[in-house]
Structures are given as C-alpha cells and as structure tokens.
Amino acid sequence: MAHPHGKYADFETLREQAIALRREGLSRRQIRDRIHVDNNDLLNRLLEGEPPPEWTRRPRQDDLRARARELRSQGWTYDQIQMELGCSKSSISLWVRDLPKPERRDPREQAKLAARKRWEHELALRDKERRRTKEAAAREMGMMTDRDLFIAGVALYWAEGSKDKPYDRRENVLFVNSDPGVIRIYLAWLDLLGIERERLRYRVMIHMTADVEAAEQFWADRVGVDVSTFQRTTIKKHNPKTVRKNVGEDYRGCLVIRVAQGADLYRRIEGWWKGMVAMAPTRLR
C-alpha cells in the first residue's frame, strides 16, 4: 500500500518490520515511532493477528478496583493511587467511596512518599526495558553451530582456564567457574572435542560459611554425576576483615573441572588461541 505522499514503504515490508518489532516486545507506540507510521488504521493492519506483549496488557477493571481499595485502606490519597495505577480520579472515587478517609499526613511526609513511589515506578520501567533488551538479544543468537561452539570454547578456556607459564610449567586443562551456564558451555565444548566424560575430575571450591553439602549436590546435578565421585572439596577459611558479597542460598562456590592426562589437549588449546589472535581482523590504524 503506497501512501499518496510516498511516506510509507511497501506494505508487506512494513508488516514484516512491524511484526518483528512486536515479537521483540515493543509497544504499538514504540513500533509506530520506529517505522514512522502515524496512521492508526495502517498500524492495525500491519499488526493484524499479532498478540501484544504481556507487559503492554492493561490490568482488568476488577483488579484495578481491588488494588485501589487496598491502597486506600493503607491511607493513600487519590493522587497517590492515581500515580500508582494510572486510572482516573473519578474511577478511584467510585471504587473507594465507602471506605473511611485517611488521616491527613505531614506535607513533607507526603512529598517523600510521592517521590519514593515515582522512583519505584521509574525503577520498574527500567527493569522491564532491561528484560526486553536481554530477551531480544537472546533471540538474536539463533542456533549455535559446531564452529560457533568451538570458537566460544577456546575463548572461554583462555579467559577462565589455567595457563602454562615459562617460569611455571603447568600443561593442565583446569577450568574454574561459578556460573552454571558457563560450565554447561564448557562441558559441551569438551564433548565436541571428543573428550570422554570419564577423563573429567570434579571438585568444589567454596567458603567455609556456606552449605558445603548442598553446593556439592548442586554441582553434581549440573554435570550429571554422583556426588560421591567428586574429589575432596577445597574450603576457603573465613577472614573477618573481608566483607563478602557472595553469600545467601544462591551461593554455590566454584566448580573445578580437570581433564586427566590433558597435556596434549592444553597444547592444542594454546595453539588454537594463538591462531585466533593471529587471524583476528584488526581495526587499528
């Protein structure tokens, strides 16, 4: 469909763009601004049959009413409820008119509460945008080929694995990480290289204040072996002067993975890495 002023491109091309943006989680307004379509009828046709993302759906009227009554019972004013829920004061008045009026608060306290609510709302919007960006980026990856996995594994090992030094010969394939996702990719890479799982040795490194047994079981489950096959866990002693942030139920320490008889594999990894560096395109002028 061509616009009389030539403003819009071919309809099918626009529709493909609009649907792709919708599936990335963009709202109608964001799509309109991105592809420069200011005709609502045309935008409706472009998005026909494509459901809106969950975050753009408005809550049901019953849900809004229940939430408004809950906030009013907590002493919120109409202005505060309107800012929180985004509905009109007339609707709020209708929903809560049978509830007692809240006691008048100190204006400074009300101002602080309003400022806090505005900031919480801003943080919630930022969090939604952050999640949408990450989800869209994840979809961009697509399927990983063997070549992709090979290169990723080499780079991952060279960043996180142990390295040989001229002054300290350690041609061992030893990898340590606390991220289950990283461990998953590393093991898939070893599988791609044809390294038998029987050659792998596992060990947990963890702080003494953590739940050691739970951490051992957690990592055993992740790598698919019985926890009894793990080597003795390395316990890090507590230093009272250190303010630790890796605490709580989600702290599982690090998993150490060593490949038995790995000297030849280490030399190949180092060679692969040097080859990648040598062949990498340079942007330096």
Rank of each mutant, 00 (worst) to 15 (best):
D10L: 02
R252Y: 09
R197Y: 12
M276C: 15
Y157V: 04
R132V: 05
A9K: 14
W76Q: 01
R32S: 12
L284T: 08
M83V: 04
D127K: 05
T234Y: 11
F11S: 10
R32A: 10
R132S: 13
V259K: 02
R126Y: 09
R72C: 04
R130H: 02
A278F: 12
R29V: 15
R197D: 14
C254H: 06
K241R: 06
A260S: 09
A137F: 02
K101P: 08
L284N: 06
V256S: 07
D63G: 04
E249Q: 12
E249A: 04
R147G: 07
E216C: 08
M143Y: 12
H36M: 05
R23A: 09
V154I: 14
R203F: 01
K236V: 12
Q231D: 14
M83D: 09
Q217C: 06
P59L: 10
A138R: 10
L64M: 14
R267T: 00
L156P: 03
L64E: 01
R147L: 01
D98E: 06
P52T: 13
A278R: 12
R244T: 02
L190H: 04
T13A: 07
W189I: 08
E270G: 10
R201W: 00
H121Y: 11
Q82E: 11
E70Y: 01
L71D: 04
W95K: 08
T13Q: 13
A136F: 08
I257L: 09
S93N: 04
V223Q: 11
V247R: 11
Y157P: 07
Q231W: 00
E16D: 11
L43C: 05
V96I: 15
K117R: 09
L255G: 07
F150H: 09
S93M: 07
D10E: 11
R28C: 00
V259G: 04
R29Q: 05
D179A: 12
F175W: 04
A137V: 08
I185Y: 04
P52I: 15
W189V: 00
H5Y: 14
A66P: 01
A188E: 06
E270D: 05
R67G: 11
F150N: 00
D62K: 14
R65E: 09
M141E: 10
R22C: 06
L94V: 07
W273I: 02
A152D: 02
R108F: 09
Q217Y: 07
D41V: 03
R147D: 14
P53L: 12
A159Y: 01
R60W: 10
D62V: 13
G49D: 13
G86P: 02
R23V: 08
L46C: 13
M83A: 09
A114V: 10
V96Y: 02
M276A: 08
V256F: 07
F175M: 10
P52F: 12
W95N: 15
G142I: 05
R169N: 00
T282D: 07
G25H: 09
P166A: 12
Y186C: 01
